[in-house]
Nucleic acid binder design. Structure first.
Length: 274
DNA sequence: CGGGCGGCCTGGAGGC
DNA sequence: TGCCTCCAGGCCGCCC
């Protein structure tokens, strides 16, 4: 489900509710996520702590707590984090719940269990293996065509999986890589070795544009994404090619094609993307 | 070393 | 209705 825009929308929706509140109790109903949830450490780090800030790194949501601890949540493919009133009965696949002093709880629900929940000292974040290899934040200064061109130097593969490589740039998943290349007019199979500086500039600019627009529209809800208050996004109506195999290209009316790259669906317009 | 692919899971959609 | 296959927004480890 979630790429950078969805996690950022989630962060913004939760921030006003969580900051200043306190986690009274931690419940782990099912520890068998992609990485086993370390219940004892999570309880020790989170229980009784105040929420100081909500941050984001790539697709990771960071809940900064008092005492220099941070709870990290990654939604995987099907994860959802929502605030529900106290007494709301647990849902199927509600694996972790953080009960708040103000009443209610922050529930983590994830049918496919590709998500991750863990905690650590805030000072250890940068050196943690989840984060230490991560690339640039696309919405922060320094992310531009020259950066991408440098990162691509010496590489050969197609540009679409390159954009999804988190060691290069974080937060761009299958939807936004697809849409970025459509907007930039670049064929998803084009080799990164064969993109001009001007093309890289265009790719970087369109990535920033599409991510920002998606955040502004509350994210993309294809199936079940919702923010912390349960609101759906509506950027899906602005998708140019993703999920539209056989439909007319919004620019040239030609049929949109679907191919598979690195095991993932890619949609593109063969006429507009070269 | 970089890139491709399978695997991790469940559930929904669509074909028969 | 039921059963089967395919597909899904991420990421890691293994392989070449």
């Amino acid at each position: 489900m979630p790429e950078l825009p969805e996690v950022e929308v989630l962060r913004r929706s939760l921030e006003p509710h969580l900051v200043g509140d306190r986690i009274e109790r931690v419940e782990v109903h099912n520890a068998a996520l992609r990485e086993p949830v370390d219940r004892a450490t999570l309880v020790r780090h989170a229980a009784g702590r105040e929420v100081e800030a909500l941050r984001r790194r790539g697709k990771y949501l960071l809940i900064n707590l008092s005492g220099g601890r941070t709870v990290v949540v990654h939604l995987g493919m099907s994860g959802r984090l929502t605030l529900v009133p106290a007494g709301t009965p647990p849902e199927p696949h509600e694996h972790v719940a953080l009960h708040l002093r103000s009443g209610g709880r922050l529930r983590f629900r994830d049918p496919r269990r590709f998500g991750v929940v863990f905690s650590l000292p805030t000072a250890a974040l940068a050196g943690d293996p989840h984060f230490s290899h991560l690339g640039a934040e696309p919405l922060e200064p320094g992310f531009d065509g020259a950066f991408l061109a440098r990162a691509a130097a010496g590489r050969r593969g197609p540009v679409k999986p390159f954009l999804m490589d988190g060691t290069v740039v974080v937060g761009i998943g299958n939807i936004y890589a697809t849409e970025t290349l459509f907007r930039a007019g670049v064929h998803p199979r084009r080799s990164v070795a064969r993109l001009s500086a001007a093309r890289w500039e265009r790719v970087a600019a369109e990535a920033v544009q599409v991510l920002s627009a998606a955040i502004h529209q509350g994210g993309t809800t294809l199936n079940d994404f919702a923010d912390g208050e349960g609101n759906s996004g509506y950027f899906q109506v602005s998708l140019g090619v993703y999920g539209r195999e056989g439909e007319a290209c919004p620019a040239c009316e030609g049929p949109i094609r679907r191919i598979v790259q690195a095991g993932r669906s890619t949609f593109y317009c063969p006429r507009c993307q070269r």
